[in-house]
Write a protein that binds this DNA or RNA. Structure first.
Lengths: 138, 138
DNA sequence: CACCTCACACTACACATTGTAGTGCAGGTG
DNA sequence: CACCTGCACTACAATGTGTAGTGTGAGGTG
């Protein structure tokens, strides 16, 4: 599972994948497991994509350990290695940790608090509760 | 100022720049303002780098709005648009905000608390204080 | 058995980013 | 005027992604 770059100015799956990759992952998370042919058919509702293009991209995703490739009869079925939730959770966790490691916990915490003030006041209460719970656990 | 990608598995400036770019930025943040020639000379203590290579990379950084290019006599002097501190602060802030926007504040806050438990217990106290201060300000 | 089709493999090219560097031009100096 | 120095322009390699053509092999059909 190798996601190397987080694209700051994209949104959603495009932060981790190229545009075609993102559409493929989105589809596979919805449908669970598909053949290349099925993926191509689904994608083609928007705009023609060559079967070979889809195959190349999906095999690259499989090489990177993001998709699972299962031999069934003459063909292969592909499915995401992780559920969408697990994937996003893994990524957000890794990124949060990397951020705190790179810039220092207190810097990140401060930015985070700034963001909370702007965006979500109720969360500060939850955060407070979390801290209380955490203290009890020690 | 366009930094598009945050490289998850690199460290320090290499998260934002290529290796040569990173060495150049590092040097410019240390020396404040330098000509291409000076940069090349400093870098060359490790290993030969062509003047033209340094120039190309520095001009690309200037095109991206990361370096300032000042005409002085026959030649140019380059300096970082932002101080190292401002740059890192901007980046960490932007990344923190993007993370919270992308994954949801509470997800990120939870990851953050996990990280704090593993890494830095004292910071939780600071966080608590921050929340107290923040409440007073409302 | 020869053939044909289908799904996959291999290969290649385009574009962007970064590292690398050659060639050329313009302006000041001996 | 010839030359040197510093910048501009151009080009090529490697990597990641999007795109697609051609090759190959396995199975079914006449």
């Amino acid at each position: 599972m190798k996601i190397n770059k987080f694209k700051v100015h994209e949104k959603g799956l495009n932060r981790f994948f190229g545009p075609l990759e993102a559409r493929i992952m989105d589809l596979l998370w919805e449908k669970e497991e598909l053949s290349i042919k099925s993926v191509q058919t689904h994608l083609e509702t928007d705009k023609a994509v060559s079967f070979n293009t889809v195959m190349t991209v999906m095999n690259r995703l499989a090489d990177k350990g993001i998709l699972n490739k299962r031999h069934v009869g003459r063909s292969f079925l592909y499915s995401p290695m992780l559920s969408r939730e697990d994937f996003l959770n893994t990524q957000s966790k890794e990124l949060t940790y990397e951020l705190m490691d790179e810039f220092g916990s207190s810097v990140v915490v401060n930015h985070m608090l700034d963001a909370l003030q702007n965006v979500d006041e109720g969360l500060v209460a939850k955060l407070e509760q979390k801290i209380k719970d955490w203290k009890k656990d020690r």
